[in-house]
Design a protein around this nucleic acid. Structure first.
Lengths: 201, 201, 201, 201
DNA sequence: GATGAATGAGGATTCATTCAT
DNA sequence: GATGAATGAATCCTCATTCAT
């Protein structure tokens, strides 16, 4: 049975994700977040010491889900096709991160958040590989199976794949497309195919 | 020789780029910008109708330089290697955009700026292809020369390359490296090589 | 043997005195007081209608003890020395009031408390003389015994003695002394001696 | 010719003294002070870094006048009567401090202000003796002239006199008298006479 | 009696913008 | 053109108080 305030905390995290996505990090005020969560402004401070702590909770909210998602990737080495495995994994990551992309951007561009993250006690000992690690492990396993070129640095390749995913997620491209999710999933597949087959004939 | 006001305008734009990079878009106040520019706060409003206009001027400041930079790319088709041509071009873009990456992020994630950009009169009739267009043209030319696979959508490939560049520029990767520029240039080269040769054996 | 609620009430009063002394009247929040008392914030309102009532209870808490302390003073007229009798009485008052000096200051300088006190029903029919009255009575008795000059207004003298005591208690003097209580007791004795013997040769 | 904001600064200091006296230190909000000064709330922060700095400026506002007032006291040794000299000096001090007594109390009872004062850079090298020093010097000079007993510690006596003045100023006595200033001046004279002649016959 | 989550008015402070100089 | 004092709405946060448990 959930204690009295667990639901409120969850509402605040969801509201933060929604508000930052809808009106932007710079305009996501405590007032707007409280209103979206359907609680009083003061209630925020019963659950989080300050606004930045709420941002962090909202941004890291799905870290567990992300890690769980990619944890199984290395085991898939040898099954199906490399393109298929990576495309599926990246598309799932993209879906999971859709809500928090603006928060991730803020955490990477706002020096206040960067510093805070640096000095923050890590939330959990993270019982699984992070996305870049998991992808690098998967690529390494495929390398051993001969399905990936031997002269490739797997960690760099994983980072580059994720950088591409991030760039696509931000909507680097002219974003007047109606269904952004579909468009992005197509681009992710194209990107993976390009990465695998190469541009050269 | 620039008149008095022109120099002030340039100082404000440079100060905006510096301040946004150093303390973040959300914390870049008019006071901080004016101080960095060495002018009084009120002076901002002699050159720009409001703060958002200053952001735009700062963010689009180097659009001309970017366009000039990539304009020559299509003409290089057939010369040197594809990897070399793209690597050089992307590294130059990265260098030019280093100052304004945080502003670009803000312009893509802050709905206020997105809307403002939508309703803004385009600054110049854009006397050249934009970076994605130029890269797509280059890839198309190489395709005609047989140096790029025929079954590749050149515009998508260009967008994916730029998304990767953007993701790298944001510092998606653990950014504890001292010389970020060198690290990024290496990653850009790796990314281009991956894109060209593919991961598959 | 006190019931459950009586002990809680006492804890709240003691906590209020402690907290006001430690962090100041202006910063003594209900949260801090409840925490110091080891009870929940809501519990305060089970014992007092509001925070001001708690302040009053804490400030007047030792009025009974003060009155009891000075009640015996007039009877001492003629015994020992005047200096000794007054010094002992004032030092005892100082000790008793040590805990509540900041609350007394607040009750004399915060118009909200002053007004509230004015309209408050007097807590007890005051079964004894107040400190100024008791001291004045004592001085009058000594006057009759010829140990105090006849041309002295005893009530004024008592008020002045207490004003001095209050000024000393506030720590008017440079308060870097380690043991403030000892220093104050010495000053009280010096003050009484000055008052009695006079500065003139 | 006073610069643009000197008058505003003075208005803010006067308003702070008035508001703290009228509604108490704990209720003297920036809003109330700004309103009393006839300026916008934000204007406070153009002249003072924060509210505490404004309190300090208001509390120390008349330190120069106080020091100037007592500076001449030691030179009066031997002139007139000791009672007259001290009474006049103390009554003048009382008048000068009337506006700031509540602020002085706050500065002595609020740990935040005490700490701030401790770490504050002294406003001026204070080109004169402080009130306790000046009074002690005066008493010492009279001692040399034989008008004060030799076995008296002049600094302690000065501190005790000022403690009495402070206690009287706070209104330790039942403060329902209409004209508090007159009543206080009478008490000050009585206190000085008591101090000089002593209570003993 | 006791709790502590929730409240929302109010607090200090910031900030984009204006305007007299 | 340039200044910087003034503005006041808006921001983050606090706090006395209430109430369902």
């Amino acid at each position: 049975m959930p204690e009295r305030g667990v639901a409120t905390r969850a509402k605040l995290i969801a509201a933060t994700q929604d508000v930052v996505r809808e009106i932007g990090y710079a305009h996501a005020t405590t007032r707007a977040i409280a209103e979206a969560a359907g609680v009083a402004e003061g209630t925020i401070y019963r659950h989080f010491p300050d606004k930045v702590a709420l941002y962090f909770a909202a941004a890291l909210d799905q870290d567990g889900a992300l890690i769980a998602e990619v944890a199984s990737l290395p085991k898939q080495a040898g099954e199906g096709t490399v393109v298929g495995n990576l495309t599926t994994a990246l598309q799932r990551l993209a879906t999971l991160r859709e809500r928090i992309i603006p928060l991730e951007m803020a955490m990477r561009s706002d020096p206040e958040l960067i510093e805070r993250r640096r000095t923050m006690t890590p939330p959990l000992p993270s019982d699984g590989p992070s996305p870049p690690e998991a992808i690098a492990q998967y690529l390494g396993a495929e390398q051993n199976l001969g399905r990936i070129r031997r002269d490739v640095n797997c960690l760099d390749a994983a980072l580059i794949l994720l950088a591409t995913l991030f760039g696509i997620g931000i909507g680097l491209m002219p974003n007047d497309t109606a269904d952004m999710t579909d468009r992005n999933n197509l681009l992710i597949r194209s990107a993976v195919e390009l990465f695998l087959h190469g541009l050269e004939p």
